[in-house]
């Protein structure tokens, strides 16, 4: 994996508090173009908070987050423009239920990128083919299975041609038999060179695609390393315990 020297995401000494609880505690992390970072850790360790602070769905209390060199927490930054470059996939899909699958994909490119309707539709149909669900373009999301909805959600995010994709436990809400179809899409995306930050418990996926795995606990990054490192000689006792539990 070729890695440029300029990080696309730079998280610098970030703190986030919910009341007295510190959800992020002096977290620093750089993500480079083309890199695939997998974030793991026990429930409540701050994985979602970290991912969501990258596109400012959560705003951090201290520290800075730079996307493509732009500090996203300064008032001068138009966060809506930054978000257009960051695709996000949620645990619960969050497709727009009042729009068809095709409209879910074309809405943002038309309204935000000023794309013509026909161009947006052509792009959407290409993406739906890519996630192997082009036959459902005219359906409403509630008519699809969970796995199908999540693949549409990935395609919706891709329709904005983001520079990086953020995944927050994309397969956790799925029945076991549907996890594979979503992971396949993500693996393909990784192979195409997409920059990815992914919170997941799917260790097989992590092993296959991750350049680095990040282990978080209690709002802190406790260990960073390659998949081999994580599987063969995790150092921190809490990570050792965590790996035993999930494998």
């Amino acid at each position: 994996m070729t890695v440029n020297s300029q990080p696309i995401i730079s998280i610098r000494n970030v703190y986030k508090f919910f009341g007295s609880l510190s959800a992020l505690n002096d977290v620093s992390l750089d993500i480079f173009p083309g890199e695939k970072v997998v974030i793991i850790g026990p429930s409540g360790s701050g994985k979602s908070t970290l991912l969501r602070s990258i596109n400012r769905l959560e705003s951090v209390d201290l520290g800075a987050i730079l996307v493509d060199g732009v500090d996203i927490s300064t008032p001068a930054t138009d966060i809506n423009l930054v978000r257009q470059e960051l695709g996000m996939v949620f645990q619960n899909f969050n497709l727009f239920p009042h729009k068809t699958v095709l409209e879910n994909l074309t809405m943002a490119p038309i309204k935000l990128r000023g794309m013509s309707k026909s161009a947006a539709q052509a792009l959407a149909i290409d993406l739906l083919k890519k996630v192997d669900i082009s036959d459902k373009a005219a359906s409403y999301p509630n008519m699809l299975s969970g796995g199908q909805q999540q693949r549409v959600a990935i395609a919706r995010a891709l329709a904005m041609t983001p520079k990086i994709m953020l995944f927050d436990e994309p397969t956790s809400a799925l029945d076991p038999e549907m996890i594979g179809e979503v992971l396949d899409v993500m693996v393909n995306l990784a192979r195409e060179g997409m920059t990815m930050a992914c919170v997941t418990h799917e260790m097989g996926f992590a092993r296959e695609v991750a350049d680095r795995i990040i282990f978080m606990d209690k709002g802190e990054i406790l260990e960073v390393g390659s998949p081999d490192h994580f599987f063969d000689n995790p150092r921190h006792p809490r990570l050792q315990k965590f790996m035993q539990q999930i494998l």
Binding site: L86, N94, A108, R156
Partner: peptide, 15 residues
């Protein structure tokens, strides 16, 4: 309307 709807829209870049 579930909060996830707002988050999904905002994350795409909608104001």
């Amino acid at each position: 309307v579930p909060k996830g709807q707002t988050e999904a829209a905002r994350s795409l870049g909608f104001s």
